[in-house]
Amino acid sequence: MKRYISRRILVSIPTFFGITILVFLVSSLASGSPLELLLSNQNISEAEIKRQSIKLGLDQPLYIQYFKWMGNMLTGNLGESYRTMQPVMDMIINGLGATFLLAITAVILACLISLPFGIQSARYQNKAWDNISSVFSFFATSTPSFFLGLVFLYFFSVKLKILPIGGMNDIGQENNVLSLLKHLIMPAIILSFQMVGTLIQFIRSSMLEVMKEDYVRTARAKGLKERVVIIKHVLRNSLIPVVTYLGMEIPLLLGGAVVTEQVFSWPGLGLLMIKSIAARDYPVVLGITVLVAVAVLVFNIITDLIYGLLDPRIRYD
């Protein structure tokens, strides 16, 4: 087990460097330079722009820029934002807390909603429950979150005035948990919605598959109640596709739920990403992208380890 984990981590290292090279290259190919905004201003002289360019290291050849960036990153320094002049690391850590809270809440909500729906629709296949949850899940998957977000805002914030319109806290209430929850609830629901649709379908089809297994018949023949058969024998064997899906989804959420955070002005990495792209603030964009890459690598390993917990036939030696 330990050997397996260390081997997986070792394999991840070249992957990580490969990703950083790609990300760096692509960003350098992107049209628009951080100096463009300065260039558009007639009052700024050529000499000043050149001075800025040297200051940011943009006059150097690309590979030198990469090695500098990489070297700094290994010491935990992701450079400074062109836009705010703050260290990128601090900005990411600031946003990560908010994003993490939103992502985890959304994932938990998604599981809490989709498990009962998925289980019931597998159990009562092609009956009323199944049809209701199928319609619900198609609705959830196909409604864009910006639209649903605006509908929620309109009803709960504008019409009913029971939930705040955006942000994470009321001013001066930074430590008020209740206020935080009030701000969290809408974006979390919207974010979980997309996952709910997919999860219901995954749970349903995976359970229907398992319900045909001989060992489920054995479990019934033992005299177990249907509820016990479903939860202990069917569900447990149906979870692998669900874990696979969550293992791919969570790292993406950690990179920030761009649309949802934008709609609800949630101060997470998604909002930071949008602002940074708009301002051609490459160090921040690169930093967030690298963070997502690392999250993907880490969650791949975690997913594989969870497979082993779910199914004893999977061994790591």
Binding site: D214, Y215, T218, K225, D311
Partner: peptide, 25 residues
């Protein structure tokens, strides 16, 4: 519910496929 009290208790069953009739987990 009365059937569940009989299954596995007063009447029990052995199946054809021992390879797949036990839960792998």
């Amino acid at each position: 519910s009365n059937m569940t009290a009989i299954r596995g208790n007063e009447i029990s069953m052995i199946f054809q496929e021992p390879m797949t009739s036990l839960n792998p987990v």
